[in-house]
């Protein structure tokens, strides 16, 4: 019979720092990714010549390769390609940001094209310019539809920060690995790490489903 020893996880400073790092990467890469997604999403939706091919290629590339590969590539391979060393903290977040950006662009595009054709036609016969249609008719309706998938992508994003531990970012997962190495107590430590993720995301999930019920 295994004897639990939960005292090994009692390292407040270690976890607190790890939680901060995890939250910071999740929030900052999600927001930066969203901004990229809006820009590329607009390019896709408006079918901007040439740029739309760039945007499609970007979305395809980042949606069809594993995030872990992207993180490692930007951390180790990019400096070799460019000959320029980015700060570690920045290189580590680059993959996550671009990954979020690709999914956000798709969510943005899907939200816009989900608006009924009749709304476009009604705006056209009222003589609205493309910008007016987008700003006053299409986007106000589309953004409402984008909220649920963006929330769920952001939840994934927070969990995906655990992959940063492979490039030595001291997040929750990295803290758990190093604590395991010093205590040889993987069961308690990883269980505790899982509970931390759960504790962070449960409220977010609840708020999100509240919102969906309302709309």
């Amino acid at each position: 019979m295994y004897e639990f020893d939960w005292s090994v996880v009692l390292d407040g400073a270690l976890w607190l720092n790890a939680i901060k790092i995890t939250l910071a990467y999740a929030v900052v890469t999600s927001i930066a990714g969203l901004l990229i997604g809006v820009v590329f999403g607009l390019i896709l939706v408006a079918r901007v010549p040439v740029l739309r091919w760039v945007a499609s290629a970007y979305v395809l590339l980042f949606r069809s390769t594993p995030l872990l590969v992207q993180i490692v590539w930007f951390f180790y391979a990019l400096p070799m390609v460019t000959g320029y060393a980015l700060p570690d903290w920045f290189a580590a977040g680059l993959g996550l940001t671009l990954y979020m950006g690709a999914f956000s662009a798709e969510i943005f595009r899907a939200g816009v094209i989900s608006i009924e054709k009749g709304q476009w036609e009604a705006s056209t016969v009222l003589g609205f310019s493309y910008a007016t249609k987008m700003r006053h008719i299409i986007l106000p309706q589309a953004t409402r539809r984008m909220v649920p998938p963006i929330v769920s992508q952001s939840i994934l994003q927070l969990k995906n920060t655990s992959l940063l531990s492979v490039v030595a970012v001291p997040d929750i997962m990295y803290a758990a690995s190093s604590l395991t190495m010093s205590t040889y107590r993987p069961l308690e430590v990883y269980t505790f790490a899982a509970l931390l993720y759960l504790a962070i995301l449960t409220p977010v999930t609840l708020i999100a489903s509240r919102y969906e019920l309302k709309h």
């Binding site: 009924e116 009749g118 009604a122 009222l126 003589g127 609205f128 007016t132 106000p140 309706q141």
Partner: peptide
């Protein structure tokens, strides 16, 4: 005028009617 009305669902009735002259 369309078969399916195509009113803008996020605007009030009055805002719908205003939209042409105002947004243009």
């Amino acid at each position: 005028v369309f078969q399916g009305f195509n009113l803008f669902p996020h605007m009030t009735v009055r805002e719908n009617v205003m939209s042409g002259p105002f947004l243009n």
